[in-house]
Design a protein around this nucleic acid. Structure first.
Lengths: 219, 219
DNA sequence: TAGATTGTTAATCGATTAACAATC
DNA sequence: TAGATTGTTAATCGATTAACAATC
């Protein structure tokens, strides 16, 4: 089957996890795997595994299952990880520094080409061989290097103004760590949020909910 | 209506976002808001807003809408943010340091009571007034203080062994930043993942997919 | 009272699971 | 060929949206 027209967000969200598990299998030297085996490993269902892969065309062999290396390569291609989208990072607090220094951009389809902060004390520092520049230089830098994406590691209060500047400088793709909804301001942007606080609140909900249910039993 | 028995994950995921927007409205001095207005602000639908809130009982007034402060307080209660779950953090790299020093645990239902690392060079450092201790002391610390949750900011390769130790020390709730699926090992744990790499790969997918579609038009 | 907006039920839409013919 | 497992269609389940009676 050919690639489906519109892949649902549910499917896309699962792709990185498939990619991870297949990467492990590949490293472990496993050559073939059936949808049933993979589903058991990942705590999901064989039906879902097959449905997911078949959104992009059939990669398996009836009677034999899937070739691990081939499937791994296909998912890599589907995710677009062979790209080298130029990205700049803004905000070199602890979080920005963690992202800049430890994230494997090259393996995730990106290339970090610029780092910016508003604090003069940080200008000139290098992270990963990249010199931290002033936020004031963002526009000229974008004009010269045309980055595709911006990584926002600045406080919530700065994002409104900053995203406006980045938008005007031609950037339409954002990896947003701030507590701010960029997609509410623009509708022609691609935004991927990492809302850590939201995640912590959901953990809190799960814990308190589990305690509620426990009380239901004992009372 | 009384609280529904099982709240779906879809609804729960939206709660922190409601909480954020209502917090802003409250700060701005808005006293009442209708599901329609809130939906427009948040780029969602009035139906969904009302359905979501009605999972937990009716907080609105027919003809008048919702009282912002009251609704804010209700969602806070629902999320369990009034709790003070004791948490320990393991791994003081840049990411661990960012989380330890900047996350508003108190406003998210948690209290950070211990920080651990395996690197002796860090022992004795203080973050947020908390002294970094050796990973070796985790068991005795847990025995004494009984933390509810563990925050994992260690590399993927350490999580298998570490989560086993934490599990044996009685911890069942994990906020996991590592690239590792704890829930695959245990089925009586509560895990909330922040998989930053997965998020970056999804951004990559979205970008490359948007470029594919553009090519479809021009060809 | 009339207008507005909720709470809630019904309809629609989409995602997951089950089933099975195709085929390696 | 027989057994296994895919690709794909059909059935089920759940989530979202629409509609409207209840009521402030």
């Amino acid at each position: 089957m050919a690639r489906k027209e519109n892949i649902s967000a549910s499917v896309i969200k699962r792709l990185p996890r498939y990619y991870r598990f297949l990467g492990e299998l590949k490293s472990a030297g496993t050559e073939r795997i059936s949808s049933k085996e993979l589903a058991e490993k990942m705590h999901t269902t064989a039906s879902q595994v097959r449905q997911d892969f078949n959104c992009f065309g059939g990669f398996g062999q009836q009677g034999l299952g899937y070739n691990v290396s081939q499937l791994y390569a296909e998912i890599k291609r589907i995710l677009g990880l062979n790209n080298k989208y130029k990205a700049i990072l803004i905000g070199v607090g602890n979080l920005g520094r963690a992202v800049a220094s430890h994230m494997s951009f090259e393996e995730r389809g990106f290339e970090l080409i610029g780092i910016f902060d508003r604090n003069p004390a940080l200008f000139g520092n290098t992270i990963r061989g990249i010199t931290v520049q002033s936020n004031d230089d963002i526009e000229s830098f974008c004009k010269e290097h045309n980055p595709k994406a911006a990584i926002l590691c600045v406080p919530r209060s700065s994002v409104g103004e900053l995203s406006k500047r980045l938008y005007n400088a031609g950037i339409r793709c954002y990896w947003n760590f701030s507590h701010y909804d960029i997609s509410v301001d623009y509708d022609d942007v691609i935004v991927q949020n990492v809302h850590m606080s939201d995640s912590l609140m959901i953990l809190c909900y799960k814990i308190s909910d589990s305690e509620l249910s426990r009380n239901d039993y004992t009372e």
